[in-house]
Design a binder for these strands. Structure first.
Lengths: 231, 231
DNA sequence: CGCGGCTTTGATGTTCATCAAGTAAAGTGG
DNA sequence: CCACTTTACTTGATGAACATCAAAGCCGCG
């Protein structure tokens, strides 16, 4: 199960985000004293839609999915977050409760910083506030970019786009282990599980990718790019 | 054509946003001196995708559409913004240039506040920064909510959703003039113009709505809600 | 008044979801 | 550790939802 660990203070944290770069010693101590780090196993839930927002969430290592749970039993995955992402997104500043759930698709380490501490840092240190805003803006912009891009593509295009995302932005390799199931991939790009599988098989038959269980190898990057663009 | 007007200072602005509520006199003067207000006619362009971001944009009155221009000649409307919305969205803090265009779908008055002034206000006045962040968060959250809601519905559901949005959130009336063309409605909810028209006609035949040119009258709100929910 | 863009309807075809059925894999309890 | 259950994966067949194409009327505007 998940485990709270006591790390050295944030000053020495190798995963310290740029936003905490310019804090002074006193401020960093305040952050250190009002945070906890939790190690999660793959599959564990970080927060559930409807939970009270109390912390600023920072993904140190691992991979998580941020998703809406609808009462129709068809979750919608909003985004897969990478290390150094702010996984509470912007919501934490206007919502009482989380409008989405977060769970781990790989073992992950997540820092929970007391939200009141973040608020007080912004209040007293405008420079911090500004940097914070910029970083928030960037994360948000990336997710928007992706969603809008996806929504104008057909199924083949969406699959191609997502495989390229994984390859280029997350694993930085032409071969990688799909961190999510076919079902989750379907939830991420808004299609059915059957069609995800069908199209992956198609790509395999066309020798655009290789598939071995969860392991995907991109064999013909060009063609994948073409499908991405014209799908 | 569009017209720059010299209004009284922001202190007296009846449309002053809550975010400027707690500024002191000196700060408000700085805002006043580094802003301009422009009156646009329906159809005029406020900013184009790719323009350099230099101002914080605030919609005082009117209605604008925020949209992506793709090279395939199929614009995607991201959102219709109402008075008091921050129409540059979060992008202004991480993007050099606008990732979208904005144009007016009704005559509109828009304030351009020099972005450097906003930045300096955040730097020097943390409370302002925090309120600003909260408001940004709220606007962003609403758009997300809408897009995710839409993306899980079928065409009838999307039309129903949008009509209810207009009725309830924008015009606060069961009868209203559609501020956008059928074509734009299609771009907003990601379908073809033909199908927008077809489904509106269907709703008319079923006596769920009345249509007379741009004027829509919701005759059976209940049924529309049902279609929205189950579509 | 004539041109271009918007609107409307119908006919047609494609894309995609759904249903069904079976295999493989992965967790669960005795 | 094995039987059992559940969940993931896979393929095919079918039909529904939706896009595309075509044609014609309409409306606003120079």
């Amino acid at each position: 199960m998940s485990e709270v660990i006591q790390t050295a203070d944030c000053l020495d944290c190798p995963y310290r985000s740029l936003i905490f770069e310019n804090l002074n010693a006193e401020q960093l101590i305040r952050v250190t004293e009002n945070r906890k780090e939790i190690l999660y196993k793959k599959g564990e839930v970080v927060c559930k839609q409807g939970d009270r927002v109390q912390s600023f969430l920072y993904l140190k290592t691992g991979l998580v999915k941020i998703f809406k749970e609808n009462n129709d039993n068809k979750p919608q995955i909003i985004s897969i977050a990478k290390p150094k992402d702010f996984i509470g997104l912007l919501s934490i500043f206007s919502q009482e409760v989380y409008p989405f759930s977060i769970s781990c698709i790989e073992d992950s380490a997540i820092c929970f910083v007391d939200l009141d501490v973040i608020r007080s840092l912004i209040r007293e240190d405008g420079e911090f506030g500004l940097v914070f805003l910029e970083k928030m803006s960037e994360v948000s912009e990336n997710i928007w970019q992706s969603r809008l891009e996806l929504s104008k593509k057909n199924l083949r295009g969406r699959i191609a786009y997502t495989l390229l995302e994984f390859s280029q932005n997350i694993f930085d390799d032409l071969q990688f282990d799909l961190p999510i199931s076919r079902k989750e991939l379907a939830e991420l790009i808004d299609m059915t599980t059957e069609n995800v599988i069908r199209i992956l098989s198609e790509f395999r038959k066309d020798e655009i990718i290789g598939i071995s269980g969860k392991t995907i190898t991109i064999l013909d990057n060009n063609r994948l790019e073409q499908i991405n663009l014209h799908g």
